[in-house]
Design a protein around this nucleic acid. Structure first.
Lengths: 361, 361
DNA sequence: TTGTACGCGTTATCAA
DNA sequence: TTGATAACGCGTACAA
């Protein structure tokens, strides 16, 4: 199990015997050219004849050589890697569909350019700052994605000072000019939710918001409020929660305890919405007969909730890809492509229905 | 928003003006010693006097210098990074609590040793192989975690051939000696689920298994079967599904269509279990009155399902940490520490109850 | 197209 | 033992 002979040059090839690492010189020699020629070919630069290029590619292929990311990173002063720091509660991390989807999308954008994604999961703000510093000081990455943007977040400036390129993933209307941003469009989804509830006859529509420090939490709250105002409905009650199931259940109880409880609730995410349904059911309030519920995210479980959850779906994978393309362009000093993100979808399922509120019937 | 002046040397320090990167030589000069002395101090090696060490540390601190991971990686032939390749359907990726928790745990183990985690999310087997090759050929990482181990999986050998150290995360009983393994203990959870159901009077206990290519799927099925045999119960029906909600619902319908339907079902994960509850409810079968349901994973939503889901919980974060410590030790040629993983927990909630099966009452 | 300096720590070799 | 010097790792980039 353990190397018997941890050779000083790294035990990595203890097994594969004499075959030492193939380097650019080997390829050059085999193709009968200089190292530079090989380098040129592998960087798609001109200055190599077609026949030489052909021989070089064949030689590299036969030897199974690919440029070492390590050597390349050093000579180019460029890590060919970008970083993502995730700061989350353990609970939220494992329900939130955002990160897995976002990372899957990022991968698509990065792999095309042969960049790597370096990940760091941290629990608190202090570790988060340390993580960005490690990234920058050790030059492990060339740029970072900034997600879960908080109100008054200084990370865009911090990143700039650390010499890291950054792409901010935040709601469109919250995007400042601190850096290049990929705009999420949360407002649209919430607006559609409110309109949907309005069309079902609801007039007392409450909102359970997530952790208030995030700009997207605020964006969703604002969209909810504006939609109500636009429709001429009274602005309902908003309860602050924190995106966890427990907080969603608690907030729901608070709302149902009101003298005039809402007939519909728009939640900041699906987890709180489903916990809300559970809380309502516990006290004999039926969904959707007595209370309509809308979530946000469309987690894979949403169709299987009881009742199936009406919710807002965003194409987070597409954001990830767009963010990655933008960041790579930024790192390479190119003009970032103009990204066109797919529109938000609103998915109507069984947790919303016509109001039975007699007072307004 | 966009840099006005994309300088050729990478715009990274456009803002920070003249302050160019501090290098080891600067620290050495300031401390009045040679580069090697600085290097020795930062690698905890002897050969530097206490006073010199003191000056060096102060100089480095004042200059804010940390060794460049890039240069270090090149000279040590060592990336100081490990890789994780995730191959998953998009749907499963965003419900599965495994990866987020595992990564959070890995981070704990890696940060302590200043290693980075390089992530790659891929969709199919071909991209997966390519990903491992990229890791190895470009020497981006020193080792990899192998998760979602499949039956007949060749990745342990592949990794060895590529010169990558590997830690396999798989059920204990499936761990071969292909490499160092961190043992999951799925069987125990399933066994406890079956015993729990038995104690409630159930005699016809079915199983909905996940995608059959994974060793953990098979481990759970085997544990289910063995527990039944041990208890002297008839081996119930097993239906093959694939861990998705849709497959869980379909499998449940199949089971309830049987001439002698089960009174309890053990599912391979929570998503299928919750979808199963939904399917049962749709056809008028009440949970837990008519049917008891047990999941696996204890996702954060489990307590808020209707009824709250009885399920199996594993401390995946702990596995991640153990796997990371093991992999780092392996990469550095040390003896991996003996890991002691916390035991499986079985969480009883509302989806299981006494059987009403009159035939056996 | 090619030779060669360079990027930045690490380590083997020498000297004190 | 403490410390300095130089070679090295492996591509890249610039001068020739």
């Amino acid at each position: 199990m353990i190397e018997s002979e941890p050779s000083p040059n790294g035990a990595a090839e203890a097994e594969s015997s004499s075959r030492k690492r193939v380097v650019i010189g080997d390829v050059a020699a085999r193709a009968g050219v200089s190292k530079s020629a090989v380098s040129f070919v592998f960087n798609n630069r001109s200055g190599v004849s077609a026949s030489a290029r052909e021989r070089i590619l064949r030689a590299a292929d036969e030897l199974g050589w690919r440029p070492s990311a390590r050597a390349r990173a050093l000579s180019r002063s460029h890590a060919q890697a970008v970083g993502l720091v995730i700061r989350r509660d353990p609970e939220l991390l494992s329900t939130d569909p955002f990160f897995p989807q976002f990372m899957a999308g990022v991968e698509i954008g990065l792999t095309a350019h042969d960049y790597s994604l370096v990940l760091q999961v941290v629990a608190d703000e202090q570790s988060e700052r340390a993580a960005y510093h490690r990234f920058a000081d050790a030059s492990r990455v060339d740029g970072v994605f900034l997600t879960d943007v908080r109100i008054g977040d200084t990370r865009p400036q911090d990143a700039r000072e650390l010499g890291l390129r950054a792409v901010v993933i935040a709601p469109e209307d919250a995007a400042s000019d601190d850096g290049v941003a990929i705009g999420m469009n949360d407002s649209d989804g919430v607006r559609r939710a409110v309109h949907h509830l309005h069309s079902l006859g609801h007039r007392r529509i409450a909102h359970v918001m997530g952790a208030p420090m995030y700009v997207h939490t605020e964006a969703r709250r604002r969209a909810w409020r504006e939609a109500l105002v636009d429709l001429g409905l009274p602005v309902g009650t908003v309860v602050t929660a924190d995106f966890t199931g427990a907080s969603g259940a608690r907030a729901t109880h608070e709302l149902l305890d009101l003298p005039e409880p809402p007939t519909a609730i728009v939640y900041g995410n699906d987890l709180m919405a489903i916990a809300g349904v559970s809380a309502a059911t516990d006290r004999g309030v039926r969904v959707p007969e007595d209370l309509s519920v809308v979530g946000f995210d469309d987690i894979p479980l949403a169709p299987y909730a009881l009742p199936p959850l009406t919710t807002v779906r965003q194409n987070v994978v597409a954001w990830g890809t767009a963010a990655a393309q933008t960041l790579v362009a930024l790192v390479e000093g190119r003009q970032p492509p103009t990204v066109r993100l797919p529109p938000v979808e609103f998915v109507v399922r069984g947790s919303t229905g016509p109001t039975r509120d007699r007072r307004h019937a």
